[in-house]
Design a protein around this nucleic acid. Structure first.
Lengths: 338, 338
DNA sequence: GCTGGCACTCGCGCGCACAGAGTGCCAGGA
DNA sequence: TCCTGGCACTCTGTGCGCGCGAGTGCCAGC
């Protein structure tokens, strides 16, 4: 177990390194932080911290930099979440309040988050699987062609073309529309399959095939449609990454283009509370030099999607976590209102 | 006027510089291209080309690199468009054929273009203003709340919430829906305003306000909704840009996030035929070290949107232009089929 | 008008020495 | 037992000088 002072030393190292981006030595540490001990003592502590794997030297006779393990300890034990100041909260709220539709909410959120943290922001669209159905609409585009439009409580709209096995009359369509909506409007996606299971039986023989087709398309849309979209922003902040540029940045840009990777990244994070993944804790190799701070957000008490930021492991964790948490909270409010 | 040989020298310089990324000298030129003259002669030609502003030296006693003006001449007079090979065309077609909906078409196009050109690809969604209405749907969500869903011939769906000044009955809604569709389905957006102008008159006094509100929302969606979306991809290719990295790349990333800038960029390009904007020809300062190759694409003979790539001025123009043209052509076909 | 030759200019890479920051270790003191 | 000051050592980064090589401009000759 590390002594209290050694933890303080580690905290000081992390803070200094995050600020200066340069390896920090024992002398500089004692000058900038009032630890009450001499550089020599700090050196001993550093040696111990290095033995434990919390810090490392890039080269012999250079200062120390925190390892992933060091950051982990810092985040878990040494630093809290830095709350936003009053004016900052106001600004967040004002900025988000101007949004006119879901796309706009997500777009604003992503820009806001990128600007606040000066890092790359990732915002997942409110997920279909956790929301409820507001309305289902069926349009006849041709005798045997129906367009299915699904509207969710978060304002999201999904449409699907359905090719019917047989022509489907206007009246049957209206019937199906009415029955569908009375059963599933306001219900959670997860419950829909059971609720519509016996619907085909209510129809004439000739229409049953079509009804079944429409229903299966609807279920597909609900389930398989975990093709959850997301929006990213602030990629220009990647240029602040560091010196060894092209090598680090390339895989990150590649990762950011692979929505699958990002969705998995956000998905792995815990459902409630904030998740911080540091360096190699990220499963995706290209992001091994980055940390991901993510949190769920939602309209009610429940999370319907996630958002977060991707930045260098050397990031201001308390500040970033504060910004992410605050933004998530206000987006949730906005969604609840609309 | 430049002699034929000097133009050949310029062409050779451009080709070599694009290939090697290094200033090209007179000796190297004569070795790699059979110009039939000695290095000394080439030197004289180079001096002349430099006087005219087509090439420049980064430092005294270094090789020459083309200027924006040099690339311009190269593109206009010295190089054609390199057509895709048969297998390449097949591959493009196969890749795009798998698309299931509009988002997928655009997504695939962007990835394809980025991969083919190894540059940043930008694809604009088929524009609303030039397409036709396939269907308009009205849904009653609350007594005085209507959702308007607009479906275009390119498969795009736009939805809007409409708050009505007065409650609006189901039957009136059905009436409006029917009248609207019979008038504007299949018509071009531009024609819609006239076609619906006198619609409120067909309704009872009490409903006229609501009908007018719905119509004005519809028109807004059609017109103001030149908020044309776009998709970008291949940003990882920016890492191939060069040496003076962070300085060049940052403004580019910033430009790419500003959809307004990109839309303006594509918008400035001519409506038909391919447009190449080289270096400082781009109005936006951050893109002064890039070239933009863009072209319109569309389902019929007419362009409904544009696509293009952004890359370093030092790019393979013939190849890039060939790829852009081919992709635009096939996307047009896909859209026409669906 | 093209060519070969020649002197000249620079940028780049290399070796070297030096300053500065930081370390590890040790002996002495609280 | 733990902290401290001192000391020798090890690196990296930087500035300088030098030589090489690529490339140029110019000129006289064909």
């Amino acid at each position: 177990m590390l002594s209290e002072r050694r933890l303080q030393v580690l905290r000081a190292i992390v803070q200094d390194y995050v600020g200066t981006e340069e390896p920090v030595g024992s002398k500089a540490l004692t000058e900038r932080h009032s630890l009450g001990v001499s550089p020599a003592t700090v050196r001993n502590d550093m040696a111990a911290l290095e033995d434990e794997g919390y810090i490392a030297q890039p080269h012999t006779s250079a200062g120390r930099i925190p390892t992933d393990k060091g950051y982990r300890l810092f985040v878990d034990k040494l630093a809290g979440v830095k709350p936003m100041t009053g004016p900052e909260r106001k600004a967040i709220q004002n900025f988000l309040d101007g949004a006119v539709d879901l796309d706009d909410v997500v777009g604003r959120t992503v820009r806001l988050l990128a600007q606040l943290t000066r890092q790359v922001a990732v915002v997942q669209y409110p997920s279909l699987t956790r929301s409820t159905v507001r309305h289902v609409e069926l349009l006849s585009l041709a005798p045997a062609r129906v367009m299915l439009v699904l509207i969710t409580d978060t304002g999201r709209v999904e449409q699907r073309m359905v090719d019917c096995p047989a022509p489907f009359g206007e009246s049957s369509l209206a019937d199906l529309r009415a029955r569908l909506n009375s059963r599933i409007a306001g219900r959670r996606f997860a419950d829909v399959p059971q609720l519509v299971q016996d619907l085909p039986e209510a129809f004439e023989n000739e229409d049953r095939g079509t009804v079944a087709t429409v229903l299966s398309t609807l279920l597909e849309t609900l389930v398989e449609e975990t093709e959850e979209r997301l929006m990213i922003g602030g990629t220009a902040n990647l240029t602040r990454f560091g010196h060894d540029f092209p090598l680090t940045i390339r895989p990150i840009l590649e990762a950011l283009e692979e929505q699958v990777v990002l969705l998995k990244l956000l998905g792995e994070a815990g459902d409630s509370g904030m998740t911080v993944r540091i360096g190699h804790e990220n499963a995706y190799e290209g992001l091994n030099s980055t940390s991901v701070v993510s949190v769920g957000y939602g309209s009610g008490g429940e999370a319907v999607a996630k958002l977060g930021v991707v930045g260098p492991t050397r990031m201001d964790y308390p500040g970033t976590m504060g910004a992410v948490r605050a933004v998530a909270r206000y987006v949730g409010q906005i969604l609840a209102e609309s």
